[in-house]
Amino acid sequence: MLSALALCLSVALLSGCTATPTPTVTAPATTAATPRANTEPAEASPVFASNDEALAAAEAAYSAYEALSDTITSEGGIGGDRIAIAASAAYLPELLAGFEGFSETGLISRGTTTYDEASLIRSAPEPQGGVRIELYLCSDISAVRLYDASGNDKTPVDRTNRIPLQVGFVSSATEPFLLLIDKEDVWSGRNFCQ
């Protein structure tokens, strides 16, 4: 069921194909989990009412990030700072370095990055407010091809197209539902994407 949900979210987000997608802000279905002013700081209220809700919000945020990244690489990696609206301050330098490295290749991308097998590792409110969510997922770049200025396909033949990742998101106390990507770590153990 969650796979179907993830697929629906992906299709809904990616079919829009906007030039500058923005991070998705997903509010919970109920208002019960809304942070309350009288809640003691030591026991932060959950931002999302359920783990399913947290997973759906994180998947939506990741889809938006993927689309934004695809847009930037389709333009040769120029203007990488557009990713800032979807990334945490801590992770942004790494993303910018990635786009800079891509732009140095002189290539452009065509195609869409996707993911599957998303599952929740954890979702927990941060002590200072907001939430931290982590997922396992398989990033799939098999549909993304790289071309040089002459239109020649320069996609690396031996490129790994499915990557097992631990993806992390954070949000702030002021915008608890705005999930910003905070890490994309390759799972160092068994490749669960093969």
Partner: peptide, 22 residues
């Protein structure tokens, strides 16, 4: 067992990242 290594989408397009793990 290797520690986790970051891999952005843009980096993964042009190379295996991180190569030693994948």
């Amino acid at each position: 067992i290797s520690p986790a290594s970051a891999c952005t989408i843009s980096a993964s397009l042009t190379k295996n990242c991180p190569e030693e793990i994948i």
